[in-house]
Design a protein around this nucleic acid. Sequence first.
DNA 1: GCGTATTCTCGTCAATAAGACGTATATTGA
DNA 2: TCAATATACGTCTTATTGACGAGAATACGC
Lengths: 236, 236
Amino acid sequence: MPEPGGWTIPEVAVAVDLAVLTVHDGSLQIMVVNRGIPPYEGMPALPGGFLASASESLDDAAARELREETGLDAAALHLEQLRTYGTPDRDPRRRVITVCYVAFSPRLPEPVAGGDAREAKLMPVEKVLKPRARLAFDHKKIIGDAVERARAKLEYTTLAAAFCPPEFTMSELREVYEIVWGQRLDPRNFHRKITSVAGFLVPAGKREPKQPGRPATVYRRGPATTLHPAMLRPRA
Amino acid sequence: MPEPGGWTIPEVAVAVDLAVLTVHDGSLQIMVVNRGIPPYEGMPALPGGFLASASESLDDAAARELREETGLDAAALHLEQLRTYGTPDRDPRRRVITVCYVAFSPRLPEPVAGGDAREAKLMPVEKVLKPRARLAFDHKKIIGDAVERARAKLEYTTLAAAFCPPEFTMSELREVYEIVWGQRLDPRNFHRKITSVAGFLVPAGKREPKQPGRPATVYRRGPATTLHPAMLRPRA
DNA sequence: GCGTATTCTCGTCAATAAGACGTATATTGA
DNA sequence: TCAATATACGTCTTATTGACGAGAATACGC
């Protein structure tokens, strides 16, 4: 809705940033890159960048940056818009608003090497969110929002399976809940609740891991996307 | 993260749009304006517009557009970011991405006159979302998302009170739920659930309306923001 | 003034879901 | 073979929901 008169549309740069979450080594981890240029040079930041052109869609830009900076394929993981951050002074160079996405990824194949000069690596969210930890821009707040989104969605969607490989056991799924929520869950009650949700998991066979103990049923993701009844996290 | 070389940041116009929802005349209604200029001239659209300057924050822009186009005060109602829409072809003139907000407003004082040449009026959401209804840009989809946000937030927050005047009765609150969810609720169970949430409502006195029947307790909003336990909508 | 319709408020009861926990089952490793 | 371990299933108690009964407090017609 351009106004009449001499007013012109202000110059605002549009970026996308990605909060890629995964469960690794017993903790919730987030993909960060080291900034190669000022501002915040050398500091950890979320992968992301400006739109490549005026005709690139936001979702496409997110998928492209994900590929370029972390080597991951957007089609292989769950990617959704988080929210948009646009405080006028969030970038010292110029006005930038950034449309942020959250991604939920299964255990990553490798400490994925970045396509750019930067290096992509996983860091525990717990460490990144510490009061003394420093991140570029407002990325610390973004990560906080992303984690809260993940915690909330585990309650009423089947999203936890997005953190698991194609085939997984009940324990692996429970571990996702425990790590994302930061709480131990009773394996027996968890098993009962999950199996009571129609279409969440479909059995795939048995397996015999190196692990001692009775072998677990192997499951695949079912067609369900929402949880009924919901799995509310225990409240202290 | 500007790239080296000849690449320049693409020109993208940033707008904010508002989905102002209210409960009126027994239905959920949304504030729309009539577009005075092409494209979509004469068609209903959400109030909104471009950033006024490169230094205006997104929240400020939303509050300003709300005031300019509908005469409402952002401080007097609940305003929160919905999501950002940025399909490349959503505006035929140029690339525009719009950061959308939802507002929940009590019964509005008047069919508020717009500040601009446009006229702001309320329309039932049910009517606007009909397959044959036409709205400017992708505003129909935005309204759908806004309504779904409202429906979901009623389940686990005290947001319903934001649709009520400062003082209200249990029936008025229940009517909000019934209208937003499009379902009748049992008054007795509703009363029990709401009063069981500590800090949702605080009594303010009695009143004797023209209505027949026992006079209802008048409540004000309490300090609580989340609902425990949640009020899940009945599922068909 | 009086009964009746109306609406608010409180209470009951069965069905469902959650939390705590007991235990049989099936495997690994000493 | 036996201990250790993890899975899978069941029980019990308590909390919450949904359906509904009924008293309390008012307006209105007669």
